[in-house]
Design a protein around this nucleic acid. Structure first.
Lengths: 345, 345
DNA sequence: CTGTTAGCGCTTTCAC
DNA sequence: GTGAAAGCGCTAACAG
């Protein structure tokens, strides 16, 4: 690969001059010299070496992003999609994504290593929890990062998150509009951060619509198809007058379990039982019937995160942004044919 | 961040000595000095700067990987999964993945830029075609890469691919074992490389089992749910004696279309019509009934690619590896309850 | 065994 | 307007 020296020799100027024209420093290079340099660059086929530039400027233009655990079937379609949009967004800001994995028990070592060795300029964190050690660590280290997802409320750091509260609230309103009164919710374990926001949206929606908040209507369980089945089974122990006519699942995977179990019990989804999921995972649109679900605005979230990252990286003093992005209800047919007046979009 | 100089000062030695002990050069540093340096490293909290190391060694320890286009619903579960396992594999080889995107019409510019600017040491290419310009470009440039997927047969480059021929062949054998004689295939457009391998496996399977190769049994169409529906509709124009009793779809998405259409026509999947997909996308296991499908060995493929990459990057002379990895048939219930003797694994 | 020093490719201050 | 030279942080001849 040709270096700046080759260009300088070819153009008959010093390497400083080459650097000046390539970096558009002031206008203080004569038009003639400038053109000669540019020609020489073309002739030798020169592209500045990024590593050298980085060393000089003490940056890497790399953003670190840790993969979520992806077992064979990841079932985390949101993050699958997020990383793509994030890659795209940081790229148009002139960065690249450096991806890495880490043992789930020891994430900090890897973050620390990447940070100390100057491998990346910043991190993007996803899949946060209540008391996320990575966030704590990066705050303490004073290292730039933005997270997709909230954590401990009193920690001061920049994040962007889906407004799960609002998403579920809208789902409740939609169901109420369809005439439902007994609406249940299949939620994640009580400790889940995102889960709690969504449940809060459910409770607010029920109350605001003057509906009873039956404690038996909220069931908590793991993020898998089986829990959906178990939840429906549980609701089936209720008398027909008490059983929910509509169910909001905190994730599509759980919604699928509910639908499968319901069908095996002879119910027709969309007629005997309405179901709403969360995430809009690939393929759920092709379920039978297509699943109505709350879709997170992933591209917008990725953009917002990148924007904040740029601000942080540019700013001399720390900036703080915390942003809630509304999701949208994608209406398909798992709640029956929607009434024209309630169709969104 | 402390540099090697800080450590040297702290330990009262030269920076060369620090470098020596950190790189375990020979054993020619006295145990005493070595320990003093190590202590100093600890005390100042030093980690070598990667950029500086890279500049010195003219490498980046970064592997470039271009994202597949991911529209909102990517429907490319194989690549979603591939990139994760690839990230993991290159990492244990001491590299990181640098991901990038490019306009679909102009991929070369980005590859060229990344290559010339010394941003990455090698590329991994996926989603190849028949006459892949990226592969041609990298071969001509003599730049290290390995691809997941084949291309023009007479091009000399290293690749790893799923043995789609074998995968479909096994699917045919499985169906024949179940008693099927009229087996159809829903394939991709005739130009598709991977598609052709799979169709070849179908044809070989039919012939080897002494079954008629009815031209109307193979239908070609796009990678979407609609084509699956259209294909089934087409087969339904055949007389009941000619209609296929089993169908192999070239992808799960197409299989879903077939299942949906069949169900709407009152068929029971697994009884009236058997269906086999390809890919084992997330969630297809939860379809009703669970989809029997050919699963690619993605983790193995990622490992193999990384291995070859390491060889190429280490070797002074070019090495060439071309590897076909067998997929495996994951049997669920879309072909009915499997006979015990035909259950794989 | 350890230190001095050149140099990886580039940017930028300071002279001229 | 342009060039010489220092230096980003590190490795590795080469000296001693």
């Amino acid at each position: 690969m040709p270096t700046i020296k080759d260009v300088a020799r070819e153009a008959g100027v010093s390497i400083a001059t080459v650097s000046y024209v390539l970096n558009n420093k002031k206008g203080f290079i004569s038009q003639k010299t400038r053109q000669e340099v540019l020609d020489a660059v073309d002739r030798v086929g020169y592209t500045p070496n990024t590593t050298a530039r980085n060393l000089k400027s003490s940056q890497t233009r790399l953003i670190g992003y840790a993969w979520h655990k992806a077992p064979r079937q990841s079932n985390n379609s949101v993050l699958d999609s997020f990383i793509y949009y994030l890659a795209q967004a940081v790229e148009s800001a002139g960065y690249h994504l450096l991806t890495f994995t880490h043992p789930s028990q020891q994430p900090l070592r890897v973050y620390d290593e990447l940070m100390r060795s100057g491998r990346v300029d910043a991190f993007v964190i996803a899949d946060t929890n209540d008391n996320d050690e990575r966030i704590k660590f990066l705050i303490d280290a004073g290292f730039p990062f933005v997270s997709f997802g909230r954590s401990k409320p009193n920690w001061e750091f920049s994040w962007v998150d889906t407004d799960g509260h609002r998403g579920v609230r809208e789902a409740v309103d939609y169901l109420v509009g369809l005439g439902h009164k007994r609406i249940a919710m299949a939620a994640w374990p009580a400790g889940s951060l995102a889960g709690n926001h969504r449940v809060a949206g459910y409770m607010e929606g029920m109350t605001a619509n003057g509906l009873a908040l039956d404690p038996s209507a909220i069931l908590h369980g793991e993020h898998n198809e089986h829990f959906g089945r178990a939840a429906l089974t549980q609701w089936f122990t209720l008398s027909p007058q008490q059983r929910p006519t509509a169910v909001i699942a905190i994730s599509d995977l759980i919604a699928i379990g509910i639908m499968n179990e319901a069908e095996e019990r002879g119910l027709v989804i969309g007629r005997d039982l309405s179901v709403i999921g969360f995430d809009d995972a690939p393929l759920v649109q092709y379920l039978h019937p297509g699943l109505t679900t709350v879709q997170q605005a992933i591209p917008e979230i990725a953009e917002a995160i990148t924007q904040i990252l740029e601000d942080i990286l540019k700013a001399s003093q720390p900036t703080l942004s915390q942003l809630l992005i509304p999701p949208r209800l994608v209406i398909r047919s798992s709640c029956g044919q929607p009434l024209p007046s309630t169709v969104s979009e």
